[in-house]
Design a protein around this nucleic acid. Structure first.
Length: 487
RNA sequence: GGCGGCGUACCCAAGCGGCUAAGGGAGAGGUCUGCAAAACCUCCAUUCGCCGGUUCGAAUCCGGCCGCCGCCUCCA
């Protein structure tokens, strides 16, 4: 297995510290607002990475944190006139609603910063004792000049960073690059007692403390969005390695951004779409598939049109499954088997190709390509109207492998019927399943009488409402009409 | 200004020195069908931003140029 490591800047063979076990930490969100599609990408990407590692037989321990105290939360609370705890509680809940919908599974540990204040104080004291940090007016800063390797992750020297000139001015710091481990609280701000007076932790310290607590001083994978490389992850390395004297993380993995008109989607630019908004019009599976149809390190351009294209792909998957299942209901087992050597091979090759793609730095886009290609081969096989006992086993095997492989992506795990019912709602069709089926019954009557005029008018009527009918040899199926053109 | 990334067909997208440049969407024609739909078949990049170089051989490596983006400040 090959993994791109931000630290080395290249793909490396993946070997966890302990064979058979992987310990990974992923930076979660600051809970002060609804999550947007950018948050969804990071969360889904690392969800898939964790799932694939498990599929590969590793015993994975995954930690994903919540930052539940920070300036943005305090600001939001002030604006709304509620406590910061209320803001954090509310948006943690909303986070779960969105991510559950997207099929993201819970991490083994999901620690919150405020539950680890004591451990943070302990670590900060240790850093002061070792001479890596200093106290000024109730604030504690990490002294960057004391840590030789500072800049090794983001690949820049301290000099270069200072030349960048956009560094904040804070007279109390020895060096503008020094960062806060502990911030003195002002009157009325949330505060915890500490040896340096009432205050709250800086942002970076929480991840060092919580990862160390659950995963040890050195662990395998640390992930997050590429915007965390500097300064967040750089600072985590500095404080952690200064504290323990040991390497902090072996593989740093960072996902690329979601863009809108080529620009990074972000709160500050205001060009973001919340997950909530997207899910009003699209099944969560469409968003998940969309996020996985590009390699995780590449930028993804977000647009309504692209979501429609993904929707068509997901529909194609379920349509093929529906067709296969229906075919299996009517296949004749007592007839001689259809020649099927090619198909047998194709099925087994799907798994190989899937693993090959995922082994190469979690290439979900390639993996999905193989899956869609397989659908074509499966359809082609069905077009030959294969018969016999062995064919039944073969088709069942095809569905099984398909389900198995896609479960790693946590896509396509529902029934085609569930998918269609969901579309009925998302596309605002305004018909119930019962109403559609009643129309189909009426049309079947007309067709029996060879009353094509009536049959066609019923079909046209449904079509106008967004329902497409398919007359198969066995029965009439309905599907929600999809369009890849923007409405 | 410093550092990093990207530029593959109408759109999205894989590709990391060597079979005919994956796959999806759109489009054109065909098979099937009462007619449709779905599915399948055929067509749709002699070419990978541009210009040079290395090599028997490059979309893939090197150099230059053009264009776009990101990080250097909170940010997934």
């Amino acid at each position: 297995m090959r993994v791109f490591n931000t630290l080395s800047g290249k793909k490396e063979d993946f070997h966890p510290l302990e064979p058979g076990g992987v310990r990974m930490y992923v930076c979660g969100v600051t809970v002060y607002d609804y999550c947007h599609v950018g948050h969804a990408r990071s969360t889904v990407v690392f969800d898939v990475i964790s799932r694939y590692l498990k599929y590969r037989g590793y015993n994975v321990v995954m930690v994903r944190n919540f930052t539940d105290i920070d300036d943005k939360i305090i600001k939001r609370a002030k604006e709304e006139g509620v406590s910061w705890e209320e803001i954090a509680r509310r948006y943690t809940e909303e986070y779960y609603r969105d991510m559950d919908a997207l099929g993201v599974s819970r991490a083994d540990y999901e620690p919150r910063a405020t539950e680890h204040i004591n451990e943070m104080i302990e670590m900060i004291e240790g850093l002061i004792k070792k001479g890596y940090a200093y106290v000024v007016d109730g604030n504690v800063y990490f002294e960057v000049n004391k840590f030789k390797d500072y800049g090794k992750l983001s690949k820049r020297s301290k000099e270069e960073m200072l030349a960048g000139a956009r560094v904040e001015v804070d007279e109390r710091k020895k060096n503008p690059l020094d960062f806060a481990l502990w911030k003195a609280s002002k009157e009325g701000e949330p505060a915890w007692p500490s040896p340096w007076g009432p205050g709250r932790p800086g942002w970076h310290i929480e991840c060092s403390v919580m990862s160390m607590k659950h995963l040890g001083e050195t662990f395998d994978i640390h992930g997050g969005g590429a915007d965390l490389i500097f300064p967040h992850h750089e600072n985590e390395i500095a404080q952690s390695e200064a504290y323990t004297g040991k390497p902090f993380v072996r593989y740093w993995i960072h996902n690329g951004f979601i863009t809108v008109s080529k620009e990074k989607m972000s709160k500050s630019l205001g060009n973001f779409f919340t997950i909530r908004e997207v899910l009003k019009q699209f099944d969560p599976e469409v968003l998940r598939a969309f996020l996985l149809s590009t390699h995780y390190r590449s930028p993804v351009e977000f647009s309504y049109e692209h979501l429609l294209e993904t929707e068509a792909s997901v529909d194609r998957f379920y349509t093929t499954v529906m067709r296969t299942e229906q075919y299996l209901e009517h296949i004749k087992e007592d007839q001689p088997d259809t020649e099927d050597k090619q198909m047998e091979e194709t099925i087994e090759r799907l798994r190989e190709r899937f693993e090959e793609a995922m082994d190469d730095d979690f290439n979900t886009a390639l993996a999905l390509g193989h899956i869609y290609e397989f659908l074509r081969e499966l359809n082609r096989f069905l077009d030959r109207r294969p018969q016999g006992k062995k064919t039944v086993a073969l088709l069942k095997r095809a569905l099984e492998v398909l389900k198995d492989v896609t479960s790693v992506l946590n896509l396509f795990q529902r029934t085609p019927y569930q998918w269609q019912v969901s579309l009925l709602e998302k596309k605002g069709i305004g018909l119930t399943v019962e109403e559609i089926e009643e129309k189909i019954r009426q049309r079947q009557e007309a067709r029996k009488r060879r009353d094509w005029g009536l049959a066609d008018s019923i079909r046209d009527e449904l079509q106008r409402k967004g329902i497409i009918l398919e007359d198969t040899r066995f029965r009439t199926l309905w599907r929600v009409k999809l369009s890849t053109e923007a409405r």
